[in-house]
């Protein structure tokens, strides 16, 4: 399981990235992140929905209530222009961390 701090640091990036695949609703976002991380990243409902509403207020995403194929109403979220820009920046930053760590962890054994 990821530490609380790392979950907090990665939540908006993960939401932006999942919505980058296409529009989605709250429950499915939790399922998707759970599935992709093989249960390592767990989001609680109490954490996710306030984050989504905050991101909406920040114009990163927008939402729409629609009837799902099951006949029930769902609130779908999708990326806005600002969100796409933010995702691009986040990607660069996370890739920088990823590349640095990969290099470190890959080269270390060779030094010994």
């Amino acid at each position: 399981m990821l530490s609380k701090e790392l979950v907090a640091a990665s939540t908006t990036t993960l939401v932006l990235s999942i919505l980058g695949e296409g529009e989605n609703y709250g429950y499915a976002l939790i399922q998707r992140v759970n599935e992709l991380s093989a249960g390592q990243v767990h989001w609680s409902e109490g954490m996710l929905y306030p984050v989504l509403h905050w991101m909406e207020k920040e114009d990163l995403i927008e939402s729409e209530w629609r009837e799902a194929e099951t006949g029930h109403r769902r609130k779908y979220y999708r990326l806005r222009q600002e969100g796409r820009k933010a995702l691009h920046t986040e990607k660069e930053q996370w890739m920088a961390v990823h590349t640095t760590l990969t290099k470190l962890w890959k080269t270390q054994p060779r030094l010994t």
Binding site: Y25, G26, Q31, R74
Partner: peptide
């Protein structure tokens, strides 16, 4: 009210799963 509706929708999806 919007939060309550969204949580109810979440609960419904969760029950189906």
């Amino acid at each position: 009210p919007d939060n309550l509706e969204e949580l109810a929708s979440h609960l419904w999806a969760s029950v189906q799963r």
